[in-house]
Nucleic acid binder design. Sequence first.
DNA 1: ACGGATCCGACT
DNA 2: TAGTCGGAT
Length: 469
Amino acid sequence: MNADHRVIALIDMDCFYVQVEQRLQPEFLGKPCGVAQYYTWKGGGLIAVNYEARNFGVKRGMRGEQAKELCPDFHVFHVQEVNGKANLTRYRDASADVFRVLNANFKLVEKASIDEGGKAGERVMELFQVEYIGQLRKYSLDALQTSMGEKDGYWLFNLTRGIETTAVNSRNLYKTISASKNFPGKTCLDTIDKIRIWCHNLAEEIFNRLEKDRAENKRRAKLLTVTCTLTTNETIARSCPINEYSIDRFANDTLKILKQYNKNSSTSNIYTPAIINLGISAGKFLDSVNTKSIADLFSKQTTKVETIRSTENTINWQEEDGEEEDNNIEEKVLEKPITTITTLSIQGDFFRKFKKTDEQINTQLKSENKTTTSSITSFFSRYTTNENVLNSSPNKIDDQYITCSKCHKSILMWNMPEHDDFHYAHELQMEENKTNSIIKTSKPIKRKTNKQKINNQTLDSFINKKPKN
DNA sequence: ACGGATCCGACT
DNA sequence: TAGTCGGAT
Ligand SMILES: Nc1ccn([C@H]2C[C@H](O)[C@@H](COP(=O)(O)OP(=O)(O)OP(=O)(O)O)O2)c(=O)n1
Ligand SMILES: [Mg+2]
Ligand SMILES: [Mg+2]
């Protein structure tokens, strides 16, 4: 794909977790609701809020109780809990469903995280006193590089001229699998017994997710990282190798690491300073097919697991039993890690910021804008019922066709939103070509609003797939 | 007591 | 190159 002529579509589900719940309980469709984690502390913390509820001022991060004050009819869905910890499996699975559909229908799909806010965007706006990205064109490459650094300045210079050739990544696989939990206030983990239990709970969740990942993606995590925050407010992260997927091994390894920060006597059950956040993460995935042969191809790589310094001694990671007679515990053998993709950190932040700006612009452009919006259920049905959504073959019944007013082509009814988008994109392109040819005052970016939704049908009749969960 | 989770760059 | 830490979302 030539980066000069490519079209990148951005797909972002509306209030995703809420829709996942509504799909399971359709009686709440059209009602203000949100998804919260936990309950006992002020009705739980909201992590997703639908648009009906946003109209009442309900926001992510609010407590369920506060949402009820703002919106008496507000309904709270609660995240499933397993062993007293929020478990996001339902949403991960739903997300995987979305990506299965996307991957089956598009050549190149990249998972991104585009959100409002963003420090880099703010810094640029502040520094250069601009509101729109195009206004940056009045600054020289030199000026941009002086303020933003050589790399980011160059990127920005080209970006403002419509030049951005970064490849779209085709990978969607996560690089880490992690499970963590806060233990605020009185709930802090201040005894070995409590810590042991939570090491086990987190280990179990990680294990389950790793096993599923191994089956689906034919790879194995090689590194376990334990992260904890103590009441002293310091955060510590330590890693150890994963030799085998096992709940007990994960739990025991985690516990062993944590014990090294216990200032109390090792015979006491009291743990000081207490733990207010505990997390386990698995990463450094390696393909499990041909692992042996691949490992043999490269000379053995030795990786040092950082020594843990305390005033008295230096402790290194070591196996429980001495089977692995690697007495030089300073070094352990790990296979060569997979190559990681690097991207400029500024990119995501920058877009995030200007996305917000765009939304401000939207209010001015309301009347001429439209947006293609549909429910999550219609997303699945539409993109799974047709063999080839984008180029569906025209051997269908006549009354399913409509004539496009712009190009007078006969278009399958359910392809009309996409077809219409084509014209929309085309118009944008023409406009952009005009403004790009000459460097002059920039125009606000023309953008679709979220308000006027066409194709917002909640087409229950199209539902042919329901989750089991 | 604004949680759980993921990614990435800087630093060493 | 590997592990740790912190920032960002
Ligand atoms: N701080 C956050 C942000 C998001 N999410 C979860 C819940 C969201 O439903 C999902 C998708 O994130 P979005 O930022 O896309 O938010 P929504 O889809 O909920 O809302 P919008 O309609 O604005 O996209 O990720 C979360 O748990 N914590
Ligand atoms: Mg969003
Ligand atoms: Mg969304």
